[in-house]
Amino acid sequence: MKWDNIKLITSFTFSDNIRMKRTFALVVLFVILFVASMRLATLTVLRRMPGLPKALIRISPQRLFLNNLLSNLALLLPFIGVMFGYDAISGEKERGTLRMILTQPIYRDEFLIGKFLGALSTIAFVILVSQVIAMGVSMAIYGIGMSMDLLWKLILFMLFSILYSISWYAIALLISVISNRTSYSALISIAIALSIIIIAPILVSVYVTMVNPPPIFTGSESPSTRQNAIRKWLMETQRLRSSLMSFSPDFQFQRLLRGLIGISNDLSFQALLSETANVLLGSTLSLTYLVLMALIPLIASFMIFVKQELK
């Protein structure tokens, strides 16, 4: 394998992606989401509003911001991966550029690694640039200060966002390798993303409600009995939902990042590192799942692409 060829394809793919309008649109969208999450979290006026549930008042603006950000990221990141992956190979086949490249002295695995690294650097670039811009904007507009623990959590958010996005890229890449047409690979990739992120949670909720219906009260129960029954029902619902959704990368990503959000604030850097390590150790399953979600389609893509007939 020749590293020069991989570097060349990586830099070519990266510069090609960066020039695309969709990359610019993604950065803008990201910035808007970041700023919106920040804005929502800084509405400290909520704390002063009478009649607000106590639980909400207890949430710190930082936690609120990170939770908002996580919800937005969970929805957006799969589509970033799909956006850069769906035409990675099928687009090259359709345009005839794959033939142009592969008739040169380059191995197919070098080409695919270059494409992958190019996409990885583009995704990292989009996430990094948008975070920096958004934090700058938020600081300037809302006067938000950056604490060490927030910065640390944002860095971790960024790293795991890249991993999560790459797992979706890998799925889209696999479909792109198999398909000869970008329209098919786009359609199938988006359908898979929508099924897992939007449709599966709805179906799981419906199923859980069917197998675990809410308790029915006759009116003669004591309030504590009702509370216990409701608590039990909620816990069972949560347990069922978690076990059924554990197949979903979206669920594992959110579980991992919620653990990170829970890390205490105002810690020393060493304590922050140690607590982060504890959270990651506790989320080994989620982390392994996300890594496998990226690796398995990537390896499959390589195996298929290297042996694929180019008629």
Binding site: F12, R19, R95, R99, M100, I101, T103, Q104, P105
Partner: peptide, 27 residues
Amino acid sequence: GILPERIGFYEHLTPVRNLTLIGKLNG
């Protein structure tokens, strides 16, 4: 030197940029 059937190029790039990529792949 190979001219494949249905060859395609990166349409948004100039011939020089396309040829630069090919040239670099050829050392």
